[in-house]
């Protein structure tokens, strides 16, 4: 078995008395794509946010490339990490949001190079060169000096992907990257993600795009009410679901 990039073990998370994740265990091998499915409110976004420690967890462990996320374990005792150490861990994990969250006061290229220069202290010239190459890669080389407000949703999302890639992440998390887009713009974003998967990026993707899941995913995980209901290859989970809830969900999405 190749190296595990993500290893989540019985992750639990509550907001007040509302337990949103009730013991999620799943793993992603290096270079593989996991598609996470589930009805609204099942905890998909929360789980993604736990992976890069945007949310603290109440139980379980999450390892990314062998590192325990957010905590330091000394014997049996867990110590919360300092903000600097958590920030350092997050640098290796790219995240793409449903609502893009580009920095509106910066142009496309400035969005891409802000973190490499400001966080990684890369020199401006190299960062800019790499940034331009990344924008080319997502098909937006000619839009480098546009502000987000001057780009379509699909273009904004592709800049957001380039921005995440600029930190040279080991893992990319996508939280419904196409669900805020007009239908005709979905394809261009999925295309970029497909290429990324082909190039060997490890990815966890929350999406309702069944075509993408079927074609790109190595594993499909269906979760409901904070629990993993079913996991397996796309053929197993999408075409031959074993659980009633999975069947009902897949029928509702198709």
């Amino acid at each position: 078995m190749s190296q595990l990039m993500v290893d989540a073990r019985s992750v639990r998370k509550s907001f007040g008395s509302n337990e949103v994740l009730k013991g999620i265990s799943l793993s992603v091998e290096q270079g593989q794509v996991l598609v996470l499915l589930g009805p609204s409110g099942s905890g998909k976004s929360t789980f993604l946010r736990c992976i890069n420690h945007l949310e603290t967890i109440n139980g379980g462990r999450i390892y990314v490339d062998g590192d325990l996320m957010g905590y330091r374990q000394a014997g049996d005792v867990l110590h919360e990490m300092k903000p600097a150490a958590i920030a350092a861990q997050r640098r290796h994990i790219g995240m793409v949001f449903q609502r893009f969250n580009l920095f509106p006061h910066l142009t496309a290229i400035e969005n891409v190079i802000e973190a490499p220069i400001g966080v990684n202290k890369e020199n401006a010239k190299d960062a800019k060169k790499r940034g331009m190459a990344l924008l080319e890669r997502v098909g937006l080389g000619d839009k480098f000096d546009h502000y987000p407000s001057q780009l379509s949703g699909g273009q904004q999302q592709r800049v957001a992907i380039a921005r995440a890639l600029a930190m040279e992440p080991k893992l990319m998390l996508f939280d419904e990257p196409t669900s805020a887009l007009d239908p005709e713009l979905v394809g261009e974003v999925l295309g970029v993600m497909r290429d990324l998967a082909k190039d060997g990026m490890t990815m966890i993707v929350v999406t309702h795009e069944m075509g993408f899941a079927r074609e790109v995913a190595d594993t499909v995980v269906f979760m409901d009410q904070g629990l993993v209901v079913e996991a397996g290859s796309p053929a197993e989970v999408l075409d031959n679901p074993q659980h009633e809830r999975t069947k009902a969900f897949i029928n509702s999405v198709l």
Partner: peptide, 8 residues
């Protein structure tokens, strides 16, 4: 959120 995810 976006800034944090970039390690800022």
């Amino acid at each position: 959120e976006a800034a944090s995810s970039l390690g800022m």
